[in-house]
Design a protein around this nucleic acid. Sequence first.
DNA 1: CCTATACTTAACCAGATGGTTGACTATCAG
DNA 2: CTGATAGTCAACCATCTGGTTAAGTATAGG
Lengths: 143, 143
Amino acid sequence: MVDYQPASLDRTFAALADPTRRALLARLSDSDAVSVSDLAKPFAMSLPAIMKHLDVLKDAGLVTREKSGRIVSCRLRAEPMHEANEWLNRYQRFWTERLDQLEALLENDAWLPPSLQNQASPSSVDSRPRPRKSLPRGPIRKK
Amino acid sequence: MVDYQPASLDRTFAALADPTRRALLARLSDSDAVSVSDLAKPFAMSLPAIMKHLDVLKDAGLVTREKSGRIVSCRLRAEPMHEANEWLNRYQRFWTERLDQLEALLENDAWLPPSLQNQASPSSVDSRPRPRKSLPRGPIRKK
DNA sequence: CCTATACTTAACCAGATGGTTGACTATCAG
DNA sequence: CTGATAGTCAACCATCTGGTTAAGTATAGG
């Protein structure tokens, strides 16, 4: 009954919910690989605290760590973000709703399949997968 | 020091990190407005537990509640997801890049046993992010 | 009025989270 | 070998999270 959602999404979103961790990811997106202490430098907290954040990011699959000598290089791994992005894109039609309505008005629904034309009621928002930048593969059925 | 990240992203990602809450949002994306007890019905947990989840979603701005008589209608509000989506999209080139690299590997197959190597690689290895749709996205590693 | 329904609030609890300090291991440089 | 550097581990602590039960409020309906 409740649609099953993989635990990896849990860990991904939870990892992204902390500003320190998002800043770490931002830093890793600038450089190819960064050592742990270099990563920690800009922050006001202790090194073990950063380590814990890196552990969370690693458990979420968002960073990899590779030891070479005594320095440990951290690298961004963005695939889990892709999964999160696809989950979010199922809701894209809700925030692009107004834009879609405007487009539909301007373009006179020419791009819609005939079965969906002339259904401009604002309450029935469903089944308007407008191909934008990414894939909005939302549920089609209406309750 | 650290680039400032708004607290609303914290709340949005944190709200999305729970499977129950994602299921609630999925339910709300099917119907225009759903009462609290209808929302709670499919779940094995108590009503106050669902209430707490709805509070979290409300604090994140992901649902609105409107009382009418003794029933409270909940509605999806997707704007915070838009913000989260835009944050994620700043990293899109990374998963696209890596997929391109993987694809280049598969086409180049220098790592394959010679019996499985076939024709040469036509695509450039380090390409800019280009829109691709056929992704062999197998399960990301689970715990 | 009386009672069932719909929701809310409060108190409590176990476990996760986010930080600390201090001690410890491993490696590089002299 | 010695000492500094890079990172990890362990114990501790406060707060947050996600659930419970029990009691309370408000409205709809007979």
